[in-house]
Structure formats: structure tokens, C-alpha cells
Amino acid sequence: MGQKWFRAVALSLLIGVSGAVSPGLATETDGAEPEQQVGAITHLPLPRYVSMKASKGNARRGPSVTHRIDWVFMRRNMPLQITAEHGHWRRVVDQEGVGGWIHHSLLSGVRTVLIQKDMLDIHARPNDKSPVTAQLELGVVARLDQCLPDWCRLQVAGFKGWAPKTALWGVDRAELRD
């Protein structure tokens, strides 16, 4: 009992005011598989991907308008990863790891991805041998549709097709979507 009590006290000290567990910290302490972390406000998984709803969003040093603006996101639909929650604020990072705290009203649950390979072929079916439906330039933002273990179906500028997950930022490698 003493050891579990100590772990519970240590965990409660790490959780702090926001109720969020430090990244990578498992909430199970008796050898069981670690639980998925969830946001203290939304109870949705952390980390998770979202997109910019607005065409401009201030990323602040802390979760309030009194905190300094460190970064301004200037691209509507840009995929971002939420890493923490506090009230109406979400801590986000982009594909380069840059970010800060942004008001939740500037974010959307619509999933998008960022193309990370120049002139990426998107295919009619999820394999390299199927016909190419389009080529996407490095940095293009595409809407995420379905995902299989190694491929995702994308939509962009009227084109639809499949791309390998390894060429995309904004989707987890193990993520499956119907």
C-alpha cells in the first residue's frame, strides 16, 4: 500500500492545477498498459490533430490574452497538433514543433495534412502501381479522408487520391480512419 500511495501522491503533484498529466507519463502504476492521455477539458485524446479554422491565429506564451504572442499562424486549414488544454485554450505545435497557446475558437476538428515530399504522387488506389491522379507540391495542405495502415486518401483542389502516410504530417502512423 505504501508504494502505491507514494506513486499516487507523486502523480497528483505532477498533474498540477490544469489536471493534465505530463507528456509521456503513464497513469497506470502497477505494470498494466499505459492509458491514453486525455484532455482535462474536452476529454479527447492528447496529443491529437486539428486544423486552423481562421486565417490568422495568435500563439501565445501562456493560456490567456495577457500572455505575450510568440507566433502568428497565417494559414487557414493548416494542420496543428494539440498537446495540452487549459480552459478555452489549447497548446498547439506545427510540423516544425513551433507553437504556443491558441484560443479554441480558432481551431477546427476538420482533419488536414501537410504534404512533406515535393511532387508527391497521389494514386487512384492505395498502392504504388495504381494510376497517378495528381502530383502535390511540398507544403500543400490537403483534407484527410480515409486512412489505412500505410496509406491515406486525400482531397485537394478537386483532386482525390491515396498517398503514403510517410509523406504526410498531421496523421499518426498507426491511425486508421473510415
Score class of each variant (00 low, 15 high):
residue 7 R to K: 08
residue 7 R to H: 12
residue 9 V to T: 09
residue 11 L to Y: 06
residue 11 L to M: 13
residue 14 L to R: 12
residue 16 G to W: 09
residue 17 V to Y: 04
residue 19 G to S: 05
residue 20 A to I: 02
residue 22 S to Y: 07
residue 23 P to S: 10
residue 25 L to S: 09
residue 30 D to N: 06
residue 32 A to M: 10
residue 33 E to P: 07
residue 34 P to M: 11
residue 34 P to S: 11
residue 35 E to P: 04
residue 35 E to R: 14
residue 36 Q to D: 11
residue 38 V to K: 13
residue 39 G to Y: 11
residue 39 G to N: 06
residue 41 I to A: 02
residue 44 L to H: 13
residue 50 V to W: 08
residue 51 S to T: 01
residue 55 S to N: 14
residue 63 P to E: 09
residue 67 H to E: 15
residue 69 I to Y: 07
residue 69 I to W: 05
residue 71 W to R: 13
residue 72 V to E: 04
residue 74 M to T: 01
residue 75 R to K: 11
residue 77 N to P: 00
residue 79 P to G: 07
residue 82 I to Q: 00
residue 84 A to H: 09
residue 86 H to C: 04
residue 88 H to S: 02
residue 89 W to L: 01
residue 90 R to D: 01
residue 90 R to C: 07
residue 94 D to V: 05
residue 95 Q to N: 15
residue 95 Q to D: 08
residue 98 V to E: 07
residue 99 G to A: 06
residue 100 G to D: 03
residue 106 L to G: 00
residue 109 G to I: 00
residue 111 R to E: 00
residue 111 R to T: 02
residue 114 L to Y: 05
residue 115 I to Q: 05
residue 117 K to W: 01
residue 120 L to M: 14
residue 123 H to P: 02
residue 126 P to S: 06
residue 130 S to A: 15
residue 134 A to L: 09
residue 135 Q to H: 13
residue 135 Q to Y: 05
residue 136 L to C: 11
residue 136 L to S: 11
residue 137 E to C: 10
residue 139 G to Y: 10
residue 140 V to A: 14
residue 140 V to H: 11
residue 142 A to H: 04
residue 145 D to E: 10
residue 146 Q to K: 15
residue 146 Q to E: 15
residue 147 C to I: 06
residue 149 P to G: 05
residue 150 D to V: 09
residue 150 D to R: 13
residue 155 Q to K: 11
residue 155 Q to R: 14
residue 155 Q to D: 07
residue 156 V to K: 08
residue 156 V to P: 05
residue 159 F to L: 12
residue 161 G to S: 06
residue 163 A to G: 13
residue 167 A to R: 00
residue 167 A to V: 08
residue 167 A to Y: 12
residue 169 W to T: 00
residue 171 V to Y: 12
residue 173 R to G: 10
residue 174 A to W: 09
residue 175 E to N: 07
residue 175 E to A: 15
residue 177 R to C: 03
residue 178 D to H: 08
